[in-house]
Design a protein around this nucleic acid. Structure first.
Lengths: 108, 108
DNA sequence: ACAATAGTGAAGTGGTTACTTCAGTATTGA
DNA sequence: TCAATACTGAAGTAACCACTTCACTATTGT
């Protein structure tokens, strides 16, 4: 379970943009070409490719080119890494609240 | 379960910076003052306050001032919202892979 | 009362990000 | 072979981000 800070920077940064989250959302329903990713977005294809580069640099998305079509897909392990980071902090906090509750109950 | 895109932007953006993740990490172990948050960070107090503003705007952190000390704490519901967004996309993808696996197994 | 502590707010700066347009390459179908 | 398709890459730009410094206010301990 990698917690490389630089990698987390890239992943959260990648998810911080609605266009890129839209692309991840689309890819969560199955692989897609660059043009398919671009289709619902109100921006140039060049812009979409730049967003795709951000997603690939973060490790959240992987792609491969066959002929003239680049097919993109989600990398679930990377999603899991981001998810885990948040989850661990939330659980630490909630365990702390539980202990506090126990302590207060005991001292009644 | 709110999925306000603008709120998600703010949360992921907030988590995309290592200083801010450090602050969240610290706060996951219990409430802290601004100076306590600043102590391990190699930057001015002003910079830390600016990071704190980003965290508060995102809803991930809440704070209140008593006397001259501002005490900050984590907002676990906001963490959960970010966590859920990722989780839902990852699960959608993995369910899809499972169905694909079933299909391939059937056509053997 | 005074100094130390704890934070606030504004302005400035250099680097990054999210686009654009335009010009180009490789692949494919007719 | 020719046109359409599917990208790719570079350059430019405006807006934003992560700081800095400096000047300031409010609170507290002696």
């Amino acid at each position: 379970m990698l917690h490389d800070p630089a990698q987390l920077d890239l992943m959260f940064q990648a998810l911080a943009d609605p266009a890129r989250r839209g692309m991840v959302e689309r890819l969560s329903r199955g692989p897609a070409s660059v043009s398919q990713l671009a289709q619902p977005l109100a921006m140039s294809l060049s812009a979409v490719v730049q967003h795709l580069n951000v997603l690939e640099a973060s490790g959240l998305v992987r792609s491969e080119k066959l002929g003239r079509v680049r097919t993109c897909r989600i990398e679930p392990q990377a999603l899991r890494a981001a998810e885990n980071w948040i989850n661990e902090r939330r659980l630490a906090w909630e365990r702390r609240l539980d202990r506090l509750g126990d302590f207060l109950a005991e001292t009644d």
